[in-house]
């Protein structure tokens, strides 16, 4: 404990702002150190970095023409992995490897973008409902109940059908159907924070609502939201997979879910063409697992209650 006092000594040269920033940097450093000690978290992070790099450099590795059946007429169909086709070809002669690479882009984009939507809507609703309370809370919570009670998949299917198949519509569909979870968790946290004595103290000091939310509520719910966001990504990716598998995906953009669907309808399983469905399946599992591992670790590191339990 005592060595901490040597790290930051606010002398006259340092402004309070820089002290606060130093504190944030140190806190972030501590989280990072704890994260690095966490073996699962590091494994997840390495997988995520690898997949992200792969998705980013895909255009350099393979040409989009490889996705088109018309441009693949010369290729053998149902070819097993070989020197020419690293992961073999599908029923139309397209390279599975190219589909896998481009599919990672879609899956990651949908996962991350939909999660951002979920987090923005969910935390906004959660903080407003929890902090303002009263009838605002009642209305927002009934709304979220409504989304929670309606079977998620049929609603997503209907929405995807109405809006039409495009990546952005899929992101929108996932976003508007999945925010209630984040909203609920955030609201519960805000409710308990609002009862905390330090919030009462801030009120007694004359703080405005804005001040209380910015200084006391948000910093305390942010870690929880962050941890939940990393846990929401896999849900979004799986939803995209499901929708694509049901034929509601974006027909112009390959995704891992769409690969699975095409492999399934083309009869890859009966033909024992494992190279067609396995890469996409493993990709989904790896990314979902990686996000979950990082999320759980973050949750544990950032939530003091879980930390004490260890």
């Amino acid at each position: 404990m005592s060595e901490l006092s040597d790290v930051v000594v606010p002398g006259s040269a340092q402004s309070p702002r820089s002290v606060a920033w130093a504190r944030r940097r140190r806190a972030a450093g501590e989280v990072w150190a704890a994260f690095r000690r966490h073996r699962q978290a590091m494994a997840g992070l390495i997988i995520l970095l690898a997949v992200t790099v792969m998705a980013l450099v895909t255009p350099l590795l393979a040409d989009r023409t490889g996705l088109s059946a018309v441009d693949s007429l010369d290729n053998p169909v149902w070819a097993s992995p070989s020197g020419d086709f690293f992961l073999g070809t599908d029923n139309l002669g397209r390279s599975v490897a190219v589909q896998f690479l481009y599919g990672s882009r879609t899956s990651l984009l949908v996962g991350v973008a939909a999660t951002m939507l979920i987090v923005v809507i969910g935390s906004l609703v959660g903080v407003i409902a929890g902090f303002i309370g009263g009838w605002v809370d009642s209305i927002l919570m009934r709304l979220s109940d409504w989304f929670l009670v309606i079977p998620f998949l049929p609603l997503a299917i209907v929405l995807a059908r109405i809006l039409g198949p495009s990546i952005w519509n899929i992101i929108f569909v996932i976003g508007v159907t999945s925010w209630p979870y984040v909203a609920r968790i955030t609201r519960a946290q805000v409710l308990s924070l609002r009862q905390r004595l330090f919030v009462e103290r801030a009120r007694a000091l004359g703080a405005s609502r804005r001040h209380i939310v910015r200084q006391h509520i948000l910093p305390n719910v942010a870690p929880l939201i962050l941890a939940n966001a990393t846990l929401a990504v896999p849900i979004a990716i799986l939803t995209e997979t499901t929708l694509a598998f049901l034929g509601l995906g974006d027909s112009r953009n390959p995704s891992w879910g769409k690969s699975l669907e095409e492999a399934y309808t083309a009869g890859a399983i009966t033909r024992n063409a494992w190279w067609y469905y396995l890469p996409a399946g493993i990709g989904i599992i790896a990314v979902v697992l990686a996000f979950t591992m990082c999320g759980r670790a973050l949750e544990e590191i950032l939530d003091p209650r879980l930390r004490e339990r260890r």
């Binding site: 309070p16 504190r23 806190a27």
Partner: peptide, 11 residues
């Protein structure tokens, strides 16, 4: 309880 655990005594 009256001190925000994320704030230093200074803050």
């Amino acid at each position: 309880g009256a001190l925000n655990p994320r704030h230093s005594l200074y803050e």
